[in-house]
Simulated assay, not measured.
Amino acid sequence: MPTNSFAAAAYAAGQNLASGVRRPDGAAATEGQSFGALLSGAVGSVAEAGKAAEAQALAAAGGRADVVDVVTAVAESEAALETLVAVRDRVIAAYEDIMRMPI
Rank of each mutant, 00 (worst) to 15 (best):
E31M: 05
A10N: 07
A28N: 11
A27F: 04
A28E: 13
G14V: 08
V21E: 11
A13S: 11
A9E: 04
L17G: 07
A8T: 10
A28D: 13
T3Q: 08
V21M: 14
A9G: 01
A7Y: 07
S5I: 14
T30G: 06
V21T: 15
T30I: 03
T30W: 00
G14Y: 01
T30D: 10
N4L: 11
A7E: 11
R22E: 14
N16G: 08
A12C: 01
N4F: 11
A13T: 08
A7F: 13
A10W: 09
A27C: 08
G26P: 06
Y11P: 01
F6W: 05
D25M: 01
P2E: 06
G26I: 01
N4H: 12
E31Y: 05
P2I: 04
S5P: 00
A13K: 02
N4I: 14
A18N: 06
A29M: 08
A9L: 06
A8S: 13
E31V: 06
T3E: 10
G20I: 01
G14P: 06
A9I: 02
G20V: 03
S5D: 15
T3A: 09
A18C: 01
Y11F: 13
A8M: 14
A8E: 13
S19Q: 05
A7P: 02
A29N: 15
P24S: 12
Y11L: 15
G14Q: 07
D25Y: 03
A9K: 10
A8Y: 05
N16W: 00
T3H: 10
G26Y: 05
A29P: 04
A13M: 07
G20K: 03
E31R: 00
P24C: 02
V21N: 09
P24I: 12
N4R: 11
A7W: 07
F6A: 06
G14S: 09
A10E: 06
A29F: 08
T30Y: 04
F6Q: 09
A13W: 02
G26A: 14
A8Q: 12
A7M: 14
A8W: 03
F6D: 04
P2C: 01
D25F: 02
R22M: 15
V21S: 11
A13H: 02
R23L: 15
A9Q: 06
R23T: 14
T3S: 11
R22T: 15
R23Y: 03
G32C: 03
A8V: 00
T3F: 11
N16F: 00
P24A: 14
G32F: 02
E31T: 08
S5Q: 15
A18Q: 12
T3G: 01
D25E: 05
L17R: 10
Q15L: 15
F6L: 13
G32H: 00
Y11G: 04
P2N: 14
S19V: 04
N4G: 12
A18W: 06
T3I: 11
S19G: 03
